[in-house]
Design a protein around this nucleic acid. Sequence first.
RNA 1: GCGCCUGUAGCUCAACUGGAUAGAGCAUCGCCCUUCUAAGGCGGGGGUUGCAGGUUCGACUCCUGCCGGGCGCACCA
Length: 583
Amino acid sequence: MKEQIIQAIAEAMQQLSSDGKIQGEFTGEAQVTRCKDPTHGDYASNIAMAYAKKISLAPRQLAELLSDQLNTHKLFEKVEIAGPGFINFFIAQKNHTRVINNILSEKNNFGNNKDGHGQSIQLEYVSANPTGPLHVGHGRGAAYGATLANLYKANGYQVHREYYVNDAGRQMDILATSVWLRYLELCGTEFTFPSNAYKGDYIWDIAATAHRTHANKYLVDPASFRETLPKDEPEGGDKEAYIDALIAVAKDKLGPQGYTAFFDLAIDTILTDIKDDLHLFGVDYEQWYSERSLFKSNKIDNVIEKLKASNHVYEKNGALWFASSKLGDEKDRVVVRDNGQPTYFASDIAYHVDKFSQGYSKIINIWGADHHGYIARVRAALKALDLDDSKLDILLVQFANLYRGNVKQQMSTRSGEFVTLRALRKEVGSDAARFFYVMRKSEQHLDFDLELATSTSNENPMYYVQYAHARICSVLRQSEQALNRESLDDLENLLSQDSEHSLMQKLTDYPELIATSCKKQSPHLVVNYLRELAQKFHGYYNETQFLVDSQELRNARLLLIESTRQVLANGLTILGVNAPDKM
RNA sequence: GCGCCUGUAGCUCAACUGGAUAGAGCAUCGCCCUUCUAAGGCGGGGGUUGCAGGUUCGACUCCUGCCGGGCGCACCA
């Protein structure tokens, strides 16, 4: 609809200039916006104010020329001038009711477009370290990423969703060692658990599995190594050095095979849990990309060789440094430590190089806000390797703080004191959680109050939208006549109330909303839209009886609310939220 | 100190990337169920958009400077 108006304005401007009424030729595009105030019509344009200066006319003069020209257009009922030179458009009623036909024809596809035709997008999100269950902080990235993926699909893009699994490195060793130590306790030995190990209950569970499988096969008396260890932090030592020493002990005592057994058991258990958890949250992936696979396929070595070949690295203090400060980063970064181990950054470079080799039109990473310091170095690496870093979009999602009433909840995986995503889903349900997470724009800090979301769940705005859907379903169930779409021509006369007009306006906006919220990567706009649509419906419901005696009128109203139901369902599908038939 | 995000009604947030009288929900006050789901609707009260300048027909939005909040500045992942 908006496009048609923009088109009409452009034509009118060209007509005016070829008639010699205005100077020069019109270039550019008119800006058209939806009016808030119904007395201003359906749409308004500021074209007269924006363009008048260029052709040295008063805005109102240009507006008058334009409105004379446009008043004859069949799209409009009338065109008026207001204020300093706004042009207000009143859409002909016939063009309002047309949206009903469109929705009922296109059904689930209404609102979709082909903007992204032929383009593919790789979307990486969540990618939390598999050192424990997902907590509520991860939930936001999951909901945001999944919704964004749906939006891109609705806009015609091919979407490849990916989870990068950090299954290599020291954190994994700490995890494996934590499990082994708990296993030793289950075997009946006594050993003070390290302050820097993973303390969550899930470690006990994994250790119990190990004990069931292997019995006492990997039992080692702590007395045999206790004396060789440095002091842990509570005893005045260094917790990092202490845990490193324990990792070494674990590797030594267990041997490669035994250590791998614990390592693999730990990561497999946790990863399975994460996959299951996300799946139940409606969050799925095309690919789970393993960091370890980068080592096995030598992709990390290859990338380091390339950096060496292009003179972007140098040695200092026994380590290999990447000169990222020359490419926009604030300082240089280590890629290989003095002990010969590549850093996490090194595998991250290799991973991104691999992403770029797949030929996607666009690559999107969704990261937590705490990773923003990382952006510059990744971009620097891409530049150093001659890759077009403008293809990469890094979207930061601000923190979600979890409150229970006024008490802020901890979210540290290491300490084991956190609320899991799984627990959250159980408390508030997947639908409410998905809805709540994307309700705010991603750059906004999100306070997630569990007490509010659970104890007073009726106040949750999600119910408001779902309720509208269920209400419509209920009315349609009770209507005994089948919807008749043959009489669509009469709709313009039958649906003439203000509430109907305003509902149709809102429905007309939906396709544009899907396009905009995708372009702006802002799922929260979908939430806002659905709340507004539901609000208009609830108002209509209270004001108007649908199941009236007149078959014609009843049919017209039912066609309108069925269209509304369809759009509510389409929008909720984008959000990954159910549209219930009854509540 | 530097960088990213942020400051709008009592609270939580919008505002169609510069448009008309800044809007919703919660909370509060008053109405509406013998009628299709009251998890709903209608109405009232509540604002110097952190502060001070600037840009222009027009600023919550853009620019500059302050003030406040969050996060990040590792040979950690």
